[in-house]
Simulated scan of single mutants.
Amino acid sequence: MPDTNVSIVTQLSDLFDAYGARDYGEHCTQYEHMAQCGWWADQRGCKEPLVLAAFLHDIGHLIAEDQALPERDRWGYRFHDSLGADWLEARGLPATVTNPIRLHVQAKRYLVATRPGYADGLSAASRATLAQQGGPYDAAACRQFEAHPGSADAVVLRELDELGKSDDFELPPITVWLERLRRFVV
């Protein structure tokens, strides 16, 4: 596990160097997926905290690899949402960044339950992890999700998550994203 006294930017750089080239059943690497999600957030005019959340939303997979946590499989780490959000929060990122990350798996379960046809548009990996994550929400869980103050941003993040899975995408180097994060946390 990275030392919490080292800057978050350095820790993230180390995680991406070690694990960013892995994939979890998609046609792109973890870095490519996360950078594409951030790019789409920019294209859609999202505010900076949500752009950074989009870029960092799957960091829990890389942390789980680094910590060699059990329950990792070919799809990644089932609890990557809370692991990533907690890790980022412990390093000083605000709730405007961490809440959408914490809720993006719940948002998938919510969207499958509330948007007819949404599940049909999920990638094969997203369908597989949906089953691992408990499947679509029931009506009570949907109401509880909707009541959470971060649910709207989590839904946007979840929509960006499905967009960011191309195997043919021109991406900037990770240093661009890390510099953006550095400016945000200063």
Score class of each variant (00 low, 15 high):
F169L: 02
R109A: 02
A152Q: 12
P49N: 08
V186C: 09
V9G: 01
G20K: 08
F79Q: 15
A95W: 13
P173T: 10
P70H: 08
D66K: 11
H33Y: 13
W39A: 09
R115S: 09
F184H: 15
D66E: 12
K108M: 13
S13M: 02
Q30W: 08
Q67W: 09
L52C: 10
Y24L: 15
T29C: 06
D161F: 00
P94S: 14
A18V: 09
E89T: 05
T98A: 03
T175G: 06
G164K: 06
R158H: 07
H61R: 13
D58Y: 00
A21L: 11
D73T: 04
D86Y: 06
F184T: 15
G38D: 05
D81K: 14
K47F: 00
F184W: 14
E26I: 10
G76Q: 06
E48R: 14
Q144E: 12
V105I: 15
G92D: 03
A85E: 04
V105N: 13
I63E: 03
F55R: 15
T4C: 04
D161N: 09
D168H: 05
H33M: 14
H57C: 10
A139K: 10
A113I: 06
A90E: 09
R72T: 07
E65G: 04
E48G: 00
Y137M: 09
I174C: 07
L93G: 05
H33S: 13
G60Q: 07
G84W: 05
L93D: 05
